[in-house]
Computed example of a mutant assay.
Amino acid sequence: MREGFTIIECIFSLMVKAMTILLIQLVLPSALHLQNDSLKNNTDWYLFIERLEDPRCHFQISKVKNNQLILSDRNNEEYQIESGKHAVFIRSVHGGYLPILTNYHPGSIKYHQLNSRNVYVTAKMLDGEEKDAIVSFAEYR
């Protein structure tokens, strides 16, 4: 007589495998979603900083007043960095705007001028992650 598995042992091992597969199917999409959100937040944040420091714009700091950043360009035109409900955007005094940061918690962005060229910027993203950077602008002429 040969030894082997009983039908109960086979059913039990199949149930364990099924439960493991079910747990993986439930957890994996959530983990991927969190990873993509974090990657999107990092990408949005770095693009935001890059747009402010863009050498083609040659932005200079005019002033930081009431937590609002006011910049000027080579032609001495003023731009305001404004926070809306859904985005932070650059607004020209002549009208028009360009969204430069999304996926942030409204009212969380703060500016602190360090010197004539650098501003410390902090913000809280929608997933609760805190971001900060020192933005370097062009030198004053």
Rank of each mutant, 00 (worst) to 15 (best):
G84E: 06
K40L: 12
W45F: 06
K40V: 01
S108L: 14
N75A: 14
I90G: 05
S38G: 05
L69Y: 02
Y120L: 11
I11S: 06
Y46M: 12
L23M: 15
V27I: 13
D54Y: 09
P29M: 09
T20H: 04
G128F: 10
N66D: 14
Q25M: 15
V119M: 02
S83R: 08
Y120V: 03
L114Q: 09
G107V: 11
L26R: 02
P106W: 05
E50H: 10
Y140A: 08
N36R: 14
T102Y: 00
E53H: 04
F137V: 06
H105G: 01
L23S: 09
K40C: 05
Y104R: 03
E9C: 12
D44Y: 11
I100V: 12
V64S: 08
R51P: 02
Y104Q: 10
L28R: 05
S72V: 03
P99C: 02
L39M: 08
D37C: 02
N118S: 07
M15F: 15
R91Y: 01
S13K: 07
L126F: 06
L34M: 09
G96C: 08
P99E: 14
D54Q: 08
M19C: 15
L71E: 01
I24G: 08
K17D: 09
K110C: 05
L23E: 01
I70W: 08
E77P: 00
K40G: 03
Q80A: 14
L28P: 04
Y46F: 06
Q35C: 07
I61H: 04
K131Y: 15
I134S: 03
Y97L: 09
M1V: 03
T122A: 10
T122D: 07
K40D: 04
Q68I: 14
Y104M: 15
K65N: 10
R51M: 07
I134W: 02
E139M: 04
G95S: 10
G4Y: 00
F137C: 00
L52D: 02
F137K: 09
P99M: 15
I61T: 01
G4E: 05
T20K: 04
C10W: 00
L69Q: 01
L101N: 06
T43K: 10
S38M: 04
Q60V: 10
Y46H: 13
S136A: 08
K65A: 02
G4S: 08
Q25L: 15
V135H: 01
P55Q: 11
N66Q: 13
L39N: 14
W45Y: 11
S72T: 10
I90D: 00
N75H: 14
L52F: 05
A133Q: 12
M15E: 10
F59H: 06
C10M: 15
S136E: 04
A123H: 09
E3Q: 05
N36L: 11
T122M: 09
S116Q: 05
D132W: 11
L32E: 07
G128P: 07
L14A: 13
G95W: 14
R117N: 03
Q60K: 12
L39S: 14
E139D: 01
V121M: 09
I61G: 03
Q35Y: 04
N67P: 06
N103C: 04
I49S: 05
W45C: 07
